[in-house]
Write a protein that binds this DNA or RNA. Structure first.
Lengths: 109, 109
DNA sequence: TGCATAGTTCGACAATAATCGAACTATCAG
DNA sequence: CTGATAGTTCGATTATTGTCGAACTATGCA
């Protein structure tokens, strides 16, 4: 049950995080994780082939946005929200709010 | 004195903004603007050739991060902070704080 | 009109990133 | 060991970005 490498919070790079979140597909993964966590890759896959999904998760992992825990045969992903919050306070939350806002402003109008 | 096109705030795309800010050079421009605004391109140029600088400003403009006002022979740039704040509350501020934090935590240690 | 300044546009090239099929690895069930 | 499942790695292709010199545009000043 080999695990992944994850950068420590001190090594997080703001530009890498912004880049990771600047892709709509990856941003949508992060949004989904923010409401249900942890979650395997499969239900987050959408219509993409597995190799693409794997690539995007790897970008998210390397940026420090997501942590992947190998448990049995599935890979459980969760946001590294506490570490992100400690390193870059408010960043993830603000971006998620902005994302929620831009994608069909919920039940208000 | 022809002016530039700038997207209206309603057309801002979160992913485009994140992408614009995910480049270290562009992020540094935005940081400099945040402390002194408005400012022409020249003093923000760093060591890059004019054509590169122009390209990066164009990315920032198209994303809605920067507004460029042509006044006489210089192009005065400022952040569209109020509009950004209205559209994506806290986003720019949080990113700027994160940027300040990651680039050499000031006088503390 | 002529020249300097500030910045853009063009076009070519280099580097980075996204996409996807196919083959592979690891774990679990039988 | 066999088969199934979950996801990765590889390698090739394409698309998007960044970079920069050279030519260009617009304004201001003499």
């Amino acid at each position: 049950m080999k695990q992944y490498e994850h950068p420590p919070a001190e090594a997080f790079q703001l530009t890498a995080i912004l880049h990771a979140l600047s892709d709509p597909y990856r941003l949508s993964i992060v949004q989904k994780l923010s409401v249900l966590q942890p979650q395997p890759c499969a239900p987050l896959q959408g219509d993409r082939p597995k190799s693409s999904v794997s690539h995007h998760f790897s970008v998210l992992r390397k940026a420090g946005v997501v942590r992947t825990l190998v448990v049995g045969v599935t890979h459980m992903n969760s946001l590294r929200d506490a570490e992100l919050e400690a390193r870059f306070p408010g960043l993830l939350k603000t971006i998620l709010e902005a994302a929620a806002q831009s994608a069909g402003l919920p039940a208000q109008g």
